[in-house]
Design a protein around this nucleic acid. Structure first.
Lengths: 170, 170
DNA sequence: ACCTGAACACCGTTCAAGT
DNA sequence: ACCTGAACACCGTTCAAGT
C-alpha cells in the first residue's frame, strides 16, 4: 500500500474522530493505514508535526468574509472556526494546542488582525474561541457519557462571550 | 518511607517544576518519592485526579480582594491567578486543563461571578486568562531554548486583553 | 520513495501479597 | 494504612535493511 503525506493526515483525522485524541497514537494511525508504525516517520518527523498538520486541515475551510461591517466579519469568522473544531472529535484540543505554539504567527490570527486592526483584540478573541470551544466539546463528551448534566445553552454562552469582547473592542 | 496524599501532591509538583508536564509521569513521581509506581494508587485513583489536586494546590493562594471597585477586584484576581500559574513550570497547562473539566463549577469562577454578577463575563475572563497564560508560558519556554525570538511585551498584551474584556463588561 | 522488522526506553494501571 | 513485585497492554522513535 502506498501513502502520501496527505493520506497520512487523512488517516490520522479518521482515527481522531473515531477514537479521540487520547487514543490517536502513531501506532493506531499506522494500523489504520495498514502499515508499520515506523513507516509514518517517512512522511513526518514526529507526532507533534502530524498534529499540527491535522490542525491545519481542520481549519482549512475557515476564513473571513470580505464584505460587511467589521463586527459582523469577526463574528462570522469566530463562528466558522468554532463549527470547524466542533465538527471532529477533540478538534478544539488539537487546533488550540497547535495554535498556542505559534500564537502571533497563525493564519487565522493574521486575518483577524486585518479585519479588526488590533493585535491584542484579535488574540483575546481567538483565545476565547479556543477556550470556550474546548470547554464545550469536553462538556458534550462528558454529558454524552452521563458524567454531567447537559448544559443546553453553551451556544448562547459562546455568543454572549463573543459580544462582550466585541463590545470592548469597537 | 511513609507518604500521605499531601506528600504525593507535593512530590508531583516538584517533579513538574523540575522536568515539565511531559515528563511528570506516575513512575517518575513515584521514583522521586522513593516508592514503587503502584504505591501511588493507594493515595489517588488515577493520574487525572492527581493532576486536579496539583491544579488546586497551584491556585490555592489565589483569591479576590474583598474591597474596592468591581473592576479593580476582577483585575487583581486575574493577575494573581496568572502569577500563580507562571510560578511553576507548565502551571498554566495543568490548571487550565483541570479547570476546563469543571467549567461552571470551579471556585475561581464562582468568586468571579460573585464580583462581576455576570456568568458569561466571568467565564470569558477566565478563559482569556488561562489561554493567554498558557501561550505566555509556552512562548517563554520556546524562547529560553532559542526556538523563537523573545516577545518582551507579553505582560502588556495580557493587560490590554484584560482591559478589552472588562471594558465590554462594565 | 515507501516500507518492514526488530529493538530501546519508556508509559498508566491492576492485583495479589507483604508489614 | 501503606507499600512491594510482577505483570499487562500499551507508547514514540530509531535504524538497518528491503523493494
Amino acid at each position: 500500500m502506498v501513502n502520501r503525506l496527505d493520506d497520512v493526515v487523512t488517516g490520522a483525522l479518521e482515527v481522531l474522530d473515531a477514537y479521540g485524541l487520547e487514543f490517536c497514537s502513531m501506532r493506531r494511525v499506522a494500523g489504520h493505514l495498514g502499515v508499520q508504525p515506523s513507516a509514518l516517520y517517512h512522511h513526518v518527523p514526529d507526532k507533534q508535526t502530524l498534529l499540527a498538520l491535522m490542525a491545519d486541515r481542520i481549519v482549512a475551510g475557515v476564513s473571513t468574509p470580505d464584505a460587511g461591517p467589521v463586527e459582523k466579519r469577526a463574528y462570522a469568522l469566530c463562528h466558522d472556526l468554532r463549527a470547524a473544531m466542533l465538527g471532529i472529535r477533540d478538534g478544539a484540543d488539537v487546533v488550540a494546542t497547535a495554535s498556542a505554539f505559534r500564537l502571533g504567527a497563525s493564519r487565522l490570527e493574521a486575518e483577524l488582525v486585518d479585519v479588526l486592526g488590533d493585535r491584542d483584540g484579535s488574540r483575546t478573541l481567538l483565545l476565547f474561541v479556543f477556550g470556550h470551544t474546548q470547554a464545550t466539546q469536553m462538556h458534550r463528551m462528558a454529558a454524552s457519557v452521563g458524567a454531567v448534566e447537559p448544559d443546553d445553552d453553551l451556544d448562547g454562552s459562546f455568543d454572549r462571550g463573543l459580544e462582550i469582547i466585541l463590545r470592548g473592542l469597537c
